[in-house]
């Protein structure tokens, strides 16, 4: 039971004209797990999710969800899944209850069952008080809770979430994460989530697939992914230099033992190094350039380091570019490259 796959993705490919957004990916999602697709905007996560949720047609390949092929039995697949999209699927001029009633009625749920379910769901996300208020008057956090609840109307076996915490304040993010965990624990709902937020992936997901340029570059549990860099001879150091200069950063990047350098803030650098001589080489270089080290720390690797290590560029860099369409990805990720 525990190892049974509910989603099998087979060579899934999506092309927009000549641009390949998703490049023949393969993976399985086990029943009852929380599976994360982590990567920068434009990596192909959302396109993958749209194909899995039958909203976009794959150019090549397919996926089997709960025994149904997404390209052949799309309506059967739709009965099993729920999707929380990055955009709010909600009509602002309808009340919370009317919205849920409308979407629920499209699933042919019997009236009495639906009425009861809507009440339960609204209670679950503490919106009962607002059930007769128009959704347009809701705060972003309330709207996102509504958005999640809408996807649960048909009691889906698989819930897809596309950047569910995007644009939410920390408190609302925590609420959504807790809610997803609860849903997974209590109902055994399989969850597939896309995110470019390391925290989300780290705190939520049983397994994480790191996606870059339409391909899966790594797939494992968070702990195992981190081991890939903290093991062997890779170390992460945080270096605070009181007279940090761009020249110094360039010089450090030039070192053989340095894999990646990112600037955390005005004075602090985060450096991934390898080899036993690495510490000495870095310190020597800083001293040779007259840099003044005010603090130095040996860090536990984060998922971000893993991503950096594997792809050679930062998640944040590409994410910050705010790329609206998959097509534009190329230019943006080029800029995002550090070395």
């Amino acid at each position: 039971m525990a190892n049974e796959s509910i989603i099998e993705v087979k060579n899934l490919t999506k092309m927009f004209n000549k641009f390949t957004a998703v490049d023949g990916i393969n993976f399985d999602v086990k029943k009852g797990e929380i599976f994360g697709l982590l990567g920068p905007n434009g990596a192909g996560k959302s396109t993958t999710l749209r194909m899995l949720s039958t909203l976009a047609r794959p150019t090549k390949g397919t996926a089997i969800i709960g025994g149904f092929d997404i390209t052949k039995n799309d309506n059967e697949v739709r009965k099993l899944i729920g999707i929380v999209s990055e955009k709010m699927i909600m009509y602002n001029r309808l009340t919370a209850k009317e919205n849920l009633w409308f979407f629920g009625s499209l699933f042919n749920i019997p009236k009495d069952v639906l009425t009861k379910r809507i009440d339960e769901l609204l209670e679950l996300v503490q919106l009962t008080k607002w059930k007769n208020a128009q959704v347009g008057t809701f705060s972003t956090g309330m709207r996102q809770r509504m958005n999640v609840v809408r996807a649960l109307l048909n009691l889906p076996q698989v819930l897809f979430l596309d950047e569910p915490t995007l644009g939410l304040d920390p408190q609302s993010s925590v609420e959504i994460r807790e809610f997803i965990k609860k849903l997974n624990r209590e109902n055994g709902t399989t969850v597939v989530i896309t995110t470019h937020m390391m925290v989300d992936a780290d705190l939520l997901c049983d397994r994480i697939a790191i996606v870059d340029h339409g391909r899966i570059v790594a797939l494992d549990t968070s702990a195992n992914l981190k081991k890939t860099i903290s093991g062997a001879d890779t170390t992460i150091i945080s270096l605070e230099i009181s007279n940090l200069s761009p020249e110094l950063i360039t010089a450090l990047r030039g070192l053989n033992c340095v894999d990646a350098v990112t600037q955390e803030n005005t004075l602090t650098l985060r450096i991934i190094v390898h080899g036993s001589e690495a510490f000495d080489s870095v310190i020597d270089k800083v001293r040779a350039m007259n840099g003044k080290i005010s603090s130095m720390q040996n860090l536990q690797p984060s998922l971000e380091d893993v991503f950096l290590h594997i792809t050679g560029h930062q998640v944040r860099d590409t994410a910050d570019q705010k790329i609206p369409q998959e097509h534009k990805r190329f230019g943006a990720s080029q800029q995002g490259r550090i070395r």
Binding site: L55, I83, I89, F107
Partner: peptide, 13 residues
């Protein structure tokens, strides 16, 4: 544009 079309499209209708 708003995205609500997706809500109808994921329903088995």
């Amino acid at each position: 544009e708003v995205g609500t079309m997706d809500g109808m499209m994921v329903a088995p209708i």
